[in-house]
């Protein structure tokens, strides 16, 4: 199984190890992530304004490249996933945006949202299967109480993301069970950590993250996992090390018994 892969800015730089964990785990589980050549940054923020065309182009280029290879497009970062999935939806449903983008790009065949966009977690759930993943685990994280932190970008708006139940999601909890740990439910797992405002003065992002962490800790979580590098950074900054915040691919690689150098 080969997928086109869009790593995104952070996983290529500061988050290179998270990316490596993801790729190694993929190989171990029998699928390959083939990095798109010359991919461009998705911008990290989905442009909600319907008359914004330029900010959608990099996503469409990636989607079109995957289409030409006849592959589904996999992302590992929630922000990339969010932006590319929603732009793909625009290309499927919004004739105004589709027309403007295609007029600009002048592709051989106009792009109309044909590519399937998958998050790495969806590959685990829908292609590999969590039962199969559980069978492949060699070093289960037995006894660990892990809280899933979904944040915003994977889930909302559910009408466009179609990823999981936006108010009571289950995919990360299934993942936690598959790697042998015990999921801890806490209400703030789908509330915002404020990550988009880490550069804003006034410590707003950390205050917001603090609420998430307090709720998770009060509900008994010993570790948090997330699928977004920005959330991970923001939560780690706020927590001061008491509650470890890990990327889900790190724990995946660990549970599969893979040694990944830093």
């Amino acid at each position: 199984m080969v997928f086109s892969y869009f790593p995104g800015c952070t996983l290529k730089n500061k988050g290179a190890r998270l990316d490596l964990c993801g790729r190694r785990a993929a190989e171990a589980l029998g699928f390959t992530l083939e990095e798109l050549p010359e991919w461009q940054c998705c911008g990290g923020v989905y442009p909600q304004a319907r008359d914004e065309i330029a900010t959608r182009l990099s996503s469409v280029r990636a989607l079109d490249a995957a289409r030409r290879k006849g592959q589904s497009l996999v992302t590992l970062c929630s922000a990339c996933h969010h932006v590319i999935r929603r732009v793909n939806g625009d290309m499927q449903r919004d004739a105004q945006i589709r027309g403007a983008v295609n007029r600009y790009l002048q592709l051989d065949t106009p792009y109309e949202g044909q590519t399937q966009v998958l998050h790495y977690l969806e590959v685990l759930r829908d292609v590999i299967g969590f039962d199969e993943l559980a069978r492949r685990v060699t070093r289960p994280l037995t006894g660990q109480r892990i809280g899933a932190y979904y944040g915003c970008l994977l889930l909302r708006p559910s009408r466009e993301m179609c990823f999981d139940d936006p108010e009571n999601p289950t995919i990360l909890e299934q993942f936690i069970r598959a790697i042998g740990a015990e999921p801890v439910y806490y209400a703030m797992r789908n509330e915002c950590c404020g990550g988009y405002t880490v550069l804003e003065p006034g410590g707003r992002a950390q205050k917001q993250a603090g609420k998430v962490l307090a709720n998770a800790a009060a509900c008994g979580a010993q570790t948090l996992i997330t699928a977004c590098p920005l959330c991970m950074y923001n939560l780690q900054k706020s927590v001061g090390g008491e509650l470890p915040v890990r990327y889900f691919t790190e724990l995946l690689a660990q549970a599969l018994g893979l040694e990944v150098e830093s």
């Binding site: 806490y186 209400a187 703030m188 509330e191 709720n215 009060a218 509900c219």
Partner: peptide, 9 residues
């Protein structure tokens, strides 16, 4: 309107 209910403790 209520926007969110969080069970805690």
């Amino acid at each position: 309107m209520v926007g969110k209910v969080s069970p805690e403790g």
